[in-house]
Design a binder for these strands. Structure first.
Length: 653
RNA sequence: GCCGACAUAGCUCAGUUGGCAGAGCAGCUGAUUCGUAAUCAGCAGGUCCUCAGUUCAAAUCUGAGUGUCGGCUCCA
């Protein structure tokens, strides 16, 4: 065996070095001091490793520097370790559990009787940053499972011991320990070279979290935080959080008169006049779109006898999510549960199936597409409610499509075409996720053969569409696999909105059939699909996407006429009336405020156009429009503005 | 549901140790008639989330409830 190893760099070049050289030394000697200084961790043959790792065999080497998002991820995990060590110092008796890095930072879960207070958090943050500055190296060590167990048992770390037993049960023989400044945790790694390289740590919140996320387990104390290599990046992150807060639909919605909540109806929005307008614009646009594309709108009852849910399968695991209704004519001596023979519908599908069954269906009718926007009610856990994104009453642009298996791929493509039209209109990018059967058979209905068929058909459709997609194994609905669409808004945040779900189970349960060209009965397949998802959630997303400044076609109020003084109210009123007569949503500010104040009010209301009307305009049948944000469109004849509105204030679909 | 924080005028927020509930904006009235982000003056506005308790006295202290907010596996 040669005492040299061959190292292949990402550009394809190869270098030889002494066997056993550490990654860091290799970089320093064979690449350059600059890279060695910027290096945070490395990958050997694609495996993330510490810079201290020895290169024992020929390998591909990739150095990950602090400019890489991957390094930041590692640094945040480093920060979680440092914070945990500080917490154990500051609060003796606190047990550690796990502390991964997450999207925008990290968290660490601690087992402790007393929750951390915001003041504790400040102390922990200060001490963590001090520990970072102390610049302790991260030291890696591999020990036997027995040694690891002895170590953490000796420290009384019950949760760590439980994790080690789990890892051992999976067949691991050794455990990797990481130490810094005398504190030890086990961890897959890699870590950065030393705590000083982390940069700056900021703790953001404390929260309760169940051990392993299961509400039957003990409640742990979770501390959330984030870390950045420098203060400037942290400040940029905090500024972004400010922007997110400013756009929060829960703030903007009530402020703009879109919607509100009342404690008498937790989780169910009141749609105020402006919000109802916005809702209706979206609803009418979607109605036109689906009507043009072969869908038929139907309306079905909100309240159903439980026999329907027994048939659909909702009366099983889903029952806890339904609002049950007492039939006042039922026997009052019966237990409450038995008197609740009705429920508000949580989904539209079963009632669509009932319509399907109201006649004998021919293959010539397929695909048969029903569309409904009825209100749905789901009893979401009180603690999970929030704004318009998690509600108990909502409306979906919901469709169920009955078709033959051979039509699935084409139909999925048709749906995706509609999605492109709709999301394109808002400038929202989307990506696709394919979710397969829930792993636990108790969480799904239908046998494996059905699931195999459903997953196979949907995947085939996906491949025909040709858009990139990701697999989300195990995340399907209880009745079938699905394609979820994730949209990215103007702040780069991702939202899951529409969905296409394939359902082989419902046609069985409801005994849905059609007569084929062979004059025999066959089972149709059902596709569940929504494009907006729920109107509530979609309006929340749009509100934040546009920061409340909706484009002219969507805005509840499309233009406001403001008069320069009382002398021009006649022309101002005429302008408002003529535009209103053309179907646009217009109002008039003829108050005796000064022009500047009127402009300000109009800007604060985020109205797309403010039309200034004064002496110049009154004499020339003209208006001077100003766009929201300040762009002055200069004086133009009213007819020219009508032209402009026709282009911008008309729904694009 | 569970853990934690919070709840004062329509909104944003002050309110000391338990001692008469405040400001700005919005609203109303009047004056002003004004050219692209706040004209001036006056007035009015309160179940201090709800219910109970402690106290001579509660927005303030205690308990219960309601609602809202941050969370409740992105798994060493």
């Amino acid at each position: 065996m040669s005492d040299l190893v061959k190292v292949t760099l990402p550009d394809g070049s190869q270098k030889e070095a002494a066997r056993g050289i550490s990654v860091l030394d290799f970089v320093k000697v064979h690449i350059g001091a600059g890279l060695a200084k910027a290096a945070y961790f490395a990958k050997l043959d694609g495996q993330p490793v510490d810079l201290t790792r020895a290169i024992d065999a020929d390998a591909r080497l990739e150095v990950v520097t602090t400019r890489s998002p991957e390094a930041l991820e590692v640094a945040r995990h480093d920060a979680a370790h440092v914070m945990a060590s500080v917490v154990q110092q500051l609060f003796p008796g606190t047990q550690v559990t796990i502390g991964p890095s997450i999207d925008d930072g990290f968290y660490y879960d601690f087992a402790r009787e007393k929750p951390f207070t915001p003041e504790d958090l400040e102390r922990i943050e200060a001490a963590t940053n001090a520990a970072v500055k102390a610049d302790h190296p991260f030291l890696r060590e591999e020990v036997s499972m027995e040694a690891a167990l002895a170590l953490f048992e000796g420290q009384g770390e019950k949760y760590k011991v439980e994790i080690i037993r789990d890892i051992a049960a999976k067949g691991a023989r050794t455990l990797t320990l990481y130490r810094h400044g005398g504190w030890v945790d086990f961890c897959l790694g890699p870590h950065g070279p030393s705590t000083g390289r982390i940069g700056v740590v900021k703790l953001t919140s404390v929260a309760g979290a169940y051990w392993r996320g299961d509400s039957r387990n003990a409640m742990l104390q979770r501390i959330y935080g984030t870390a950045f290599f420098d203060k400037k990046a942290l400040d940029a992150h905090l500024a972004r959080l400010e922007e997110v807060k400013k756009r929060d639909h829960r703030k903007l919605g009530p402020a703009l008169g879109l919607f509100a909540f009342h404690e008498y109806a937790p989780g169910s929005p009141f749609w105020l006049p402006a919000g109802t307008t916005l809702f209706n614009v979206l609803q009418e646009a979607m109605r036109r779109l689906v009507n043009r594309n072969g869908y038929q709108e139907v309306k079905t009852p909100l309240l159903f006898n439980k026999r329907l849910w027994e048939m659909s399968g909702h009366w099983g695991p889903y029952k806890k999510n339904m609002f049950l209704v007492v039939d006042s004519e039922s026997d009052e001596t019966l237990p409450l549960d038995e008197r609740c023979s009705f429920s508000l519908k949580p989904m539209n599908c079963p009632s669509h199936h009932l319509i399907y069954k109201m006649g004998r269906r021919s293959y010539r009718e397929l695909p048969l597409r029903y569309y409904t926007t009825d209100a749905l009610h789901r009893n979401e856990a009180s603690g999970s409610l929030g704004g318009l994104t998690r509600v108990r009453q909502f409306e979906q642009d919901d469709s169920h499509i009955y078709l033959m298996e051979s039509q699935i791929a084409a139909e999925v493509r048709r749906i995706v075409d509609l999605m492109k039209i709709v999301y394109g209109a808002f400038g929202l990018q989307f990506s696709l996720m394919f979710s397969t059967r829930p792993p636990n058979p108790a969480d799904r209905i239908g046998d494996d053969t059905l699931w195999d068929k459903a997953e196979g058909a949907l995947q085939a459709a996906l491949e025909q569409i040709g858009l990139p997609w990701q697999l989300n194994a195990g995340d399907g609905a209880f009745y079938g696999p699905k394609i979820d669409f994730t949209v990215t808004d103007s702040l780069g945040r991702q939202w899951q909105t529409c969905t296409i779900q394939l359902d082989y189970a419902a046609p069985e349960r409801f005994d849905l059939t059609y007569v084929g060209d062979d004059n025999a009965e066959h089972r149709p397949v059902v596709i569940h699909r929504a494009i907006y998802g729920s109107f509530e959630r979609f309006i929340a997303i749009l509100t934040e996407h546009y920061a409340g400044a909706f484009p002219a076609w969507l805005a509840p109020l499309q233009a406001r006429v403001v008069t320069v003084s009382e002398r021009f109210v006649d022309w101002g009123r005429a302008v408002a009336e003529r535009l209103t007569a053309r179907g646009w949503r217009i109002d008039l500010d003829d108050s005796n405020d000064k022009l500047g104040a009127k402009i300000r009010n109009s800007e604060l209301a985020k109205i797309p156009f403010t039309l200034v009307v004064g002496e110049k305009e009154a004499g020339a049948q003209a208006v001077s429009p100003r766009r929201h944000g300040g762009e002055d469109l200069k004086t133009m004849p009213l007819d020219a503005f009508v032209e402009l509105m026709s282009r911008e204030a008309t729904p694009p679909y």
